[in-house]
Amino acid sequence: MTTEWHALPDTIKTFMTALDAREDDRASATFAADAVVTDDGRDYRGRDEIEAWLADSVSEYTYTSEFTGATTTAEIVDVGQHLHGDFPGGVVDLHYRFTLRDALISRLVIEP
């Protein structure tokens, strides 16, 4: 099912806006203690690794992002983002695939 920004779960909206604002502490608070993030083919497990990944990712490149749409299934919320910045290639469309548990992110996969 297609989902508009305003209809996304609050946890996902909080994460995405905190990520855009480079607020890694606020973003990390949206994850379960045992969460797993996969980004660029690498897994980050647990709060400590996720916090380190967030700190690195918010400082590595400067970019802007635009919400391009979302779809939801019973288990996954897939949020599309268009990024433009000073990273290699300069432009990319990414999918942020969230799995939630008890209103926290238990799994996030970021890929084109």
Rank of each mutant, 00 (worst) to 15 (best):
M1G: 10
M1N: 08
M1F: 00
T2D: 03
T3F: 01
T3L: 09
E4K: 09
W5K: 09
W5N: 09
H6T: 13
A7P: 00
L8T: 09
T11R: 15
T11W: 06
I12E: 00
K13I: 01
T14W: 05
T14G: 05
T14F: 06
F15R: 06
T17Y: 01
A18W: 03
A18I: 02
A18H: 02
L19Q: 07
D20L: 11
D20Q: 10
A21C: 10
A21S: 14
R22N: 02
R22T: 03
D24G: 02
D25A: 07
R26D: 01
R26P: 00
A27M: 03
A27I: 04
A29S: 13
A29Q: 04
T30F: 00
F31Y: 13
A33E: 15
A33L: 12
A33H: 08
D34N: 13
V36N: 01
V36R: 04
V37Q: 08
T38Y: 01
T38R: 15
D39L: 14
D39W: 03
D39M: 14
D39Y: 11
D39S: 15
R42Q: 11
D43I: 05
D43L: 13
Y44E: 01
G46A: 04
R47Q: 02
R47F: 00
R47L: 03
D48V: 04
D48C: 04
D48K: 03
E49V: 00
I50S: 07
E51I: 02
E51Q: 12
W53A: 14
L54S: 11
A55T: 06
A55F: 00
A55N: 08
S57V: 12
V58A: 06
V58Q: 08
E60T: 14
E60Y: 07
Y61I: 07
Y61N: 12
Y61F: 15
T62I: 05
T62Q: 10
T64S: 12
S65K: 13
S65F: 07
S65H: 10
F67Q: 14
F67V: 11
F67L: 13
F67C: 12
T68K: 08
T68P: 08
G69T: 02
A70N: 12
A70P: 12
T72P: 00
A74V: 09
A74Y: 02
E75S: 08
E75V: 05
E75W: 00
I76Y: 10
V77G: 00
D78S: 13
D78W: 01
V79E: 13
V79K: 08
V79N: 05
V79H: 06
G80L: 08
G80T: 08
G80N: 04
G80E: 04
Q81K: 14
L83P: 05
L83V: 07
L83A: 10
L83C: 13
H84Q: 15
H84A: 15
G85N: 04
G85Q: 07
G85R: 04
D86H: 13
F87L: 13
P88Y: 01
G89Y: 05
G90C: 04
G90T: 02
G90I: 06
V91R: 10
H95N: 15
Y96T: 02
Y96C: 06
R97Q: 15
R97C: 14
R97L: 11
F98Y: 14
F98L: 11
T99D: 03
L100D: 09
L100S: 06
R101S: 15
R101P: 08
R101T: 14
D102G: 03
A103R: 09
L104C: 03
L104F: 11
L104D: 05
I105N: 07
R107V: 07
R107D: 08
I110G: 02
P112M: 05
